[in-house]
Simulated scan of single mutants.
Amino acid sequence: MENLIKVGMADLQTSGHPCVLTTLGLGSCVGIALYDSNKKIIGLAHIMLPSSLQARNNSNIAKFADTGIVKMLNDMLKLGARKENIVAKLAGGAQMFAFSDSSDMMRIGARNVISSKEKLQELNIPIITEDTGGNYGRTIELFSEDGRLLIKTIGHGIKYI
């Protein structure tokens, strides 16, 4: 088995080849996978909230889409990745519970996806594929060998994107 590194909730990791980064139980959280195909450098963030600007305690930058993506990108660049070679894949952002109140505060999964996309666009990192939304959790594994993202679900099968 290749070097397997677990990414916790509100956590991020980066690594060179050979490596697999994995995170468990993405519900409304979003897994943001970054990959430099030339250098085979990968990064995976498990973000919980869309914006650090709306949080009182924002000391953990990996918890938020706006700050976590920037930190992960900088960590990858330190490992030798080149920004122009990096692409992104997104997974998660599910609506795990049915709320009678459909206010934006409750639509955390969708807001996490939107915020992640906005930050990646701002950084000029193309999103090449995504598996987001729905009402089920996901466990993902990102492979440094080729950037493939394995998505495991309960009741919705296993696939690569």
Rank of each mutant, 00 (worst) to 15 (best):
S115W: 05
M9N: 10
Q13H: 12
R107M: 09
I47R: 09
I128S: 07
I61F: 02
E145S: 13
T153E: 09
G137W: 00
V20Q: 01
T129N: 11
N57C: 12
N57D: 15
A110L: 05
R138K: 15
E84T: 13
S52A: 15
K119W: 01
L73V: 11
S103G: 15
G31V: 12
N74C: 05
G25A: 12
I42D: 14
A55V: 05
I108K: 01
P126T: 02
R107H: 03
G27F: 01
I42M: 15
K152M: 14
I69C: 08
M76P: 13
V87L: 10
P18Q: 08
K89M: 09
T22G: 13
G157H: 13
S28L: 06
T22Y: 12
S37V: 14
I69E: 02
L21W: 08
P50W: 01
P50Y: 00
L24V: 05
G93E: 00
Y136H: 13
L142T: 06
E145I: 11
Y136D: 02
T14M: 06
L149D: 05
M9A: 11
A88T: 06
S115N: 06
V87E: 11
L123S: 06
G134P: 04
K63A: 15
A94I: 01
L123F: 07
I32D: 04
I154M: 14
M1Q: 14
F99I: 02
A62R: 11
T67V: 09
F97P: 00
A33M: 08
Y136V: 05
G92Y: 10
K63C: 11
N60E: 03
K117S: 09
V87P: 08
E118H: 10
L21T: 04
I140H: 00
L123E: 07
I61W: 13
N3C: 11
E2Q: 10
K117Q: 10
D11F: 04
F143E: 12
D104H: 05
T153L: 14
V20C: 07
I127C: 06
Y136E: 06
V20W: 03
F99A: 08
D101K: 08
T22R: 07
L142R: 02
I154S: 15
S28A: 09
P126Y: 02
A65P: 10
I108T: 07
D131T: 09
L149F: 10
G134I: 04
E130R: 10
I69S: 06
G8P: 09
S51V: 03
V87M: 03
L120P: 08
R107E: 03
N74R: 05
I154T: 07
E122I: 03
C19W: 02
A94L: 11
G134W: 02
Y136R: 01
E84K: 13
T22L: 10
L120H: 07
K6Y: 07
F97M: 09
S116T: 10
H46S: 09
H46T: 08
G134K: 00
T153N: 14
A45I: 13
E145D: 13
D146Y: 00
I42G: 15
K71N: 02
N38G: 13
G147E: 07
T139I: 00
